[in-house]
Design a protein around this nucleic acid. Sequence first.
DNA 1: GATTTGTTTATAAACAACCTC
DNA 2: GAGAGGTTGTTTATAAACAAA
Lengths: 279, 279
Amino acid sequence: MLPAVAPSPLTGSGEAPSLDNSLTNIQWLGSMSSNDLSPCSVKKEMEKENQTPRQEGAVEPIEEGPGPSSSTASWPKSFTERPPYSYMAMIQFAINSTERKRMTLKDIYSWIEDHFPYFKHVAKPGWKNSIRHNLSLHDMFVRETPANSKISFWTIHPEANRYLTLDQVFKVGVLYGTWGLGRAFPTPSLGTLGLGAVTASYLRALPPPWLRFPLERFFTFPGHGNIRCCSFTLHRGIRCSFGQKKRYLKLKPSQLLPQLISLPTHTFGVHLEGPVISL
Amino acid sequence: MLPAVAPSPLTGSGEAPSLDNSLTNIQWLGSMSSNDLSPCSVKKEMEKENQTPRQEGAVEPIEEGPGPSSSTASWPKSFTERPPYSYMAMIQFAINSTERKRMTLKDIYSWIEDHFPYFKHVAKPGWKNSIRHNLSLHDMFVRETPANSKISFWTIHPEANRYLTLDQVFKVGVLYGTWGLGRAFPTPSLGTLGLGAVTASYLRALPPPWLRFPLERFFTFPGHGNIRCCSFTLHRGIRCSFGQKKRYLKLKPSQLLPQLISLPTHTFGVHLEGPVISL
DNA sequence: GATTTGTTTATAAACAACCTC
DNA sequence: GAGAGGTTGTTTATAAACAAA
Ligand SMILES: [Mg+2]
Ligand SMILES: [Mg+2]
């Protein structure tokens, strides 16, 4: 019941306890953002369906901020370290990178290897099994075979596709609606990062890279009115909460947007429109 | 390419190759059928919601047929051997054994332990994790909390519930519709049992316990007309096919009955009505 | 005949929320 | 009431069995 004092945003992220994991992940956010693909990814480009060219303007490269998030001069960890994205998220990034929002299995493999070298060089071969598992398991992913074709493409169910791309994950977002009305985060426990007492201005004042986090899924709840508290996982081990507990919607996370077939839990991009409510 | 000759039904099941697994499973079908619960299951009976009394007439005890399926005089294997049912199937058996078709998690645990001692005495404790995983994962299982109650019950989505019970799995069924029109089973491969050249009279002539197998899910396809071939898994490693290949519906198994949210693959009970077509 | 693609189940684990003692 | 520890619920990862292409 004692409201724990949330870390002040302006004192810097370095003061929050046990942030090692988060900072590791934060480095990921900027490192593989754009076109630094390995050369081997160019050869079969003609056989693949066109991928939409990246809009460079959409990417905000992360300047190294204060604190331990500045990377060393050697090979970036992102080449050997597992990205913080779930398979479900990476598959969406891959499919949504194409013009027609569809991709063959083989190209999904390649896209992921090209954008996340971990899977090319480090991961056990079973990661491809996991990709196939995810494609089959989640209703969000739908296989389509064009008439008179033997090729089949994986698509994203139109009701479920929010057209998120890897680039979007890096964007800076703003709060929308009546977010951040809650009290201080009550009980920051192991592996939990409470931002506490969140207001829009509080969030705007957060030093980078905090606002670059994927926050999207808990922002809008069509049909559920104004939600005054939320809690979500940024990456494994890093969780954020806003507002009062005890007032959660009694819905499992994947039901929060009931019109969607399936929602990923982690690592979604900021994808917001609308007015910012100053609190 | 060579069409393998299917085993003749009247020469007995003992001649089919590599049936060790199947016979092990067949023993399962009769051994735990009725009320031979362990004594420790009686105590908390009052706290539980009523379970419907078993209709003894519905169970056909399996007399020991010819071949290696007769069990030894010692403790039946079924007490230490894993039952052939998936978690999804066992959960349905448990919930459907109650009057109101709902059950708490704890009672699901108990029901399974009582009816399948393997889970009480042999299985690693992680099996309960798997039960919870299945309850959450499959949309078929829906949690309901009565108003003003703290208890929550697991139910089966009414559209998906076929009200199958453990007892029904033992029932003998008959073919319905135009089943069994196909040719010989083409390529029995490792772990596959081809019945081949199946007709209704062929199936009626099969010695027990063949017709006691769970066959239900491929029998009726509302809205799909007459299906002339099918293939299904009885238990792990034992697969049956009817009819010609190359004429499969292009649907994944769980979509065969599209009005259902989710269908288990294995171990479903015979649940048939209608005329038997003699071929 | 071997490889790739697709579907399903099992198991372990991370983690949140709830409940009980 | 507060806290510790066990129970219940949701989600992801990984391996594997197996069918079909
Ligand atoms: Mg799918
Ligand atoms: Mg469920």
